[in-house]
Lab assay of single mutants.
Amino acid sequence: MEVRTIKVFTTVDNINLHTQVVDMSMTYGQQFGPTYLDGADVTKIKPHNSHEGKTFYVLPNDDTLRVEAFEYYHTTDPSFLGRYMSALNHTKKWKYPQVNGLTSIKWADNNCYLATALLTLQQIELKFNPPALQDAYYRARAGEAANFCALILAYCNKTVGELGDVRETMSYLFQHANLDSCKRVLNVVCKTCGQQQTTLKGVEAVMYMGTLSYEQFKKGVQIPCTCGKQATKYLVQQESPFVMMSAPPAQYELKHGTFTCASEYTGNYQCGHYKHITSKETLYCIDGALLTKSSEYKGPITDVFYKENSYTTTIK
C-alpha cells in the first residue's frame, strides 16, 4: 500500500517557510505537534488534498525554529505562539472599519479597549522592536488589523473576551517599542525636605499616572512627601515624541487643539466601556464603527496623549 502524501510549508514567522512532505494517514499533531492554519487549530486533523502548498504555523520545537521565533517575536515564552494563534482565530472574524481616516474595530468580545489602543497607536510616533509587531502594525494602518490585535493580546497575556485596560495595554506595548531616546527629568520640591531631581528613561519617561493635564504637570502637581507634608512635583525636561497622561476616570474637559487623542471610560472596574476622542479640525468621538463630532467635550476621561518633541522648564 502506497503512502499518500502532500507537500506543505511549516513556519513560526510566515517569513521562513520549511518544506514538509506530510503523510495523509496521520494527523498534523502526530507529525508536527500543535499546528495552526489561519489561526485555526488543526492539530487533530489529517492532511487533505486542499492543504497542498498551504502554510501551517507550528510551535518552535527545534533550534532553527526557536531562533526564527525569537528573532521575529522577541520572546522565548513557549506558550506565546499558541496564544497568538488562538487569538487570531477570533480577531480574523472582527470587522476593521476605516473611521475618520483611522483603522478602528467594530465592537465584539469586549474589544473596546483594543480599538482605543489601536486608534491611539496610529496617532503617536512609535516604532516597535519585534519585527512581528512592526509588520502587523503597518498592515493594521492599511486596514488589516487582525494579526496586530492578536499579537497585542498575546504580548499582554490576554484572551479574547476578557476586559482590558488601555493604560495597561499601552504599557505592555511600550515595553516592546523603541523608547531608548526618551528621557524625563522631574523635580520634587518640599518646604521641609528641599528639592530632589529624578531622571527617568524609556517607558517611565512617557507615562504618568495622577493627572490628565500635561500643562498642569509642567506647572506642578501636589504629591505627598515622605515627611508627610505636601510637596510639588513638576516637569523639568521632556525628550520624547509623545507623552501619555493618565488618571482614574473623572469628568474632564478636553479643549480642541490642546491634545492629540484621549480615552474615555464609562462604567466601573468590573464592567465598563471605552471610547476614543481625537482632536482634528474639530473633536471626534470614535466608538467602534461609530463616529460623532463636537466642538467641545466633557466626560469621564482616563488617558490623554500629547505630541511632544523637546521641553525644558522655565521655572527657576
Rank of each mutant, 00 (worst) to 15 (best):
E2F: 10
E2P: 11
V3Y: 13
T5I: 10
I6C: 12
K7W: 10
K7V: 08
V8R: 04
F9E: 12
T11E: 00
T11R: 06
T19A: 14
S25P: 03
M26Y: 10
G29N: 13
G29R: 09
Q30I: 11
Q31L: 13
Q31G: 09
F32C: 10
G33R: 08
G33E: 04
T35S: 10
T35Q: 04
L37G: 07
L37N: 12
D38V: 09
V42N: 10
N49I: 12
N49P: 13
E52Y: 12
E52K: 12
F56K: 03
Y57N: 08
L59K: 11
L65Q: 07
L65W: 08
L65A: 09
V67Y: 10
E68Q: 09
E68F: 06
A69I: 07
A69Q: 11
E71C: 09
Y73L: 03
Y73P: 02
S79L: 14
R83N: 11
M85K: 10
H90F: 12
K92N: 08
K95R: 07
K95F: 09
G101K: 07
G101W: 08
L102H: 14
L102V: 06
N111Q: 02
Y113I: 00
L114G: 03
L118G: 00
L119F: 00
L119S: 01
Q122V: 03
Q123E: 11
I124S: 03
E125Q: 14
F128C: 00
P130V: 08
P130R: 04
A132R: 10
A132L: 05
A132S: 06
A132T: 01
D135H: 12
D135I: 09
A136K: 02
A140R: 03
A142R: 13
G143V: 03
A146T: 02
F148D: 01
A150K: 03
A150D: 01
A150T: 05
I152T: 09
L153V: 09
A154Q: 01
A154D: 00
C156N: 03
N157D: 06
V160I: 08
G161C: 07
E162W: 01
L163R: 15
V166R: 03
T169G: 05
Y172G: 09
Y172K: 13
L173F: 08
L173Y: 00
D180V: 08
S181T: 12
C182A: 07
R184Y: 01
V185K: 05
K191Y: 09
G194A: 07
Q195H: 11
Q196G: 06
Q196A: 10
T198Y: 15
T198C: 10
L200K: 08
A205H: 05
V206W: 00
Y208F: 15
G210H: 06
S213Y: 06
Y214F: 09
F217S: 04
G220M: 02
Q222Y: 03
I223V: 14
T226W: 06
T226P: 13
C227E: 00
C227K: 01
K229A: 14
T232E: 05
T232K: 08
K233R: 13
Q237E: 11
S240G: 05
S240L: 01
F242N: 02
A247E: 04
P248Q: 11
P248D: 15
P248K: 15
P248N: 15
P249R: 08
E253T: 15
L254H: 06
K255M: 09
H256Y: 10
G257P: 01
T258V: 04
F259W: 03
T260G: 01
A262D: 00
Y265F: 15
G267N: 14
Q270M: 12
C271Y: 15
H273Y: 00
H273N: 00
Y274L: 07
Y274C: 07
K275D: 00
H276W: 15
I277N: 08
T278I: 08
K280P: 01
T282H: 10
Y284W: 13
Y284H: 10
L291N: 10
Y297M: 06
K298D: 10
P300K: 10
D303G: 00
Y306H: 00
K307M: 10
N309T: 14
N309K: 14
T312L: 13
K316V: 15
K316N: 15
